[in-house]
Computed example of a mutant assay.
Amino acid sequence: MKLVAVGDNCIDYYEKTDQAYPGGNAVNVAVYFHRNGGESAYIGAVGSDSFGKILLNGLKEKGVDTSHVHIENGTTAITQVELINGDRVFGDYNEGVMESFKLKEEDYDFIKNCDIVVSGFWGHVHHDFKGFHRSGIKTAFDFATKLEDDLVEEIIPYVDYAFFSYDGENINWIKEYMKKLHRFDSQMIVVTRGDKGSFVYDGKGFYKFGIIPCQVVDTIGAGDSFIAGFLMGSLNKLSILERMKMGAEASAETIGYNGAW
């Protein structure tokens, strides 16, 4: 089973401690999927600077296929991060060479030979999901907290596993939202709620799972870990609750240390 994560990457820079960690939604999912025992690849753009080398070397060390990463003249994306009581607070974001990232023909050929493709809101490939879906490859997309964005309605018909993050308290509202989004029988709408666990809607009913208790050091990467664990369980055709458990276990491991990975 092979997952290809396409889209954003960045260096998470903690200015107060002068520490730099490779990260980004798509990058993290690729790393965590491999950590869960799967084969993974990452496609995106990094700069020709030192941060680009750090990111590429980090991915290779984690066993992620980087053969289709675009190395462009310029700077690698960077996100300013601050830790407040274990929770990460994001500051300024400089997209660098990812701003103009586009897939090449050879990238499409590579993706279509994988089992599943995953991207996210800042990945610059949402317009490709219709083609991915029609080619028969499984698709996953992280909409993060952008529940009301026009992009949701645009690509939800082409997403097998749609992930959202919701920290509100109106459970009835979020359940109705999930039901309205559901488009086809095999599709799953997944909502993570931080320390309140997660919900899944498969068109027939709702599933709820809590969290795996752990010591919280740094919450960065928790949602991406859940996605990777859930997708691993999906490709292994586990039950929905088992997939949710795999996601929760992956998240618990990640938030027990500093940095995404």
Score class of each variant (00 low, 15 high):
K2W: 13
A5P: 05
V6Y: 01
I11P: 01
D12G: 02
D12F: 02
K16Y: 08
K16Q: 10
T17D: 15
Q19M: 13
Q19W: 07
P22E: 05
G24C: 10
A26K: 05
A30N: 09
A30M: 02
F33Y: 14
H34D: 06
N36F: 09
N36Q: 14
G37C: 09
E39S: 15
A41T: 07
A41Y: 00
G44V: 03
G47F: 01
S50W: 10
K53R: 14
L55C: 11
T66L: 07
E72Y: 02
A77C: 06
N85R: 11
N94D: 13
E105Q: 12
E106Y: 06
D109A: 13
F110S: 05
D115I: 13
D115P: 05
I116N: 06
V117Q: 13
V117E: 13
H124C: 15
H127W: 12
F132N: 04
K138S: 10
D150T: 14
E154F: 11
I156F: 00
D160M: 11
S165V: 06
I174F: 01
L181C: 15
F184R: 15
S186I: 12
T192M: 01
T192G: 01
G197Y: 00
F199E: 09
F209T: 06
G210T: 11
I211K: 11
C214S: 14
V217M: 08
I220V: 12
A222N: 00
G223W: 00
D224G: 01
I227K: 08
F230A: 08
L231T: 09
N236D: 14
I240P: 00
L241I: 06
R243K: 07
M244F: 02
M246W: 11
G247W: 07
A248M: 10
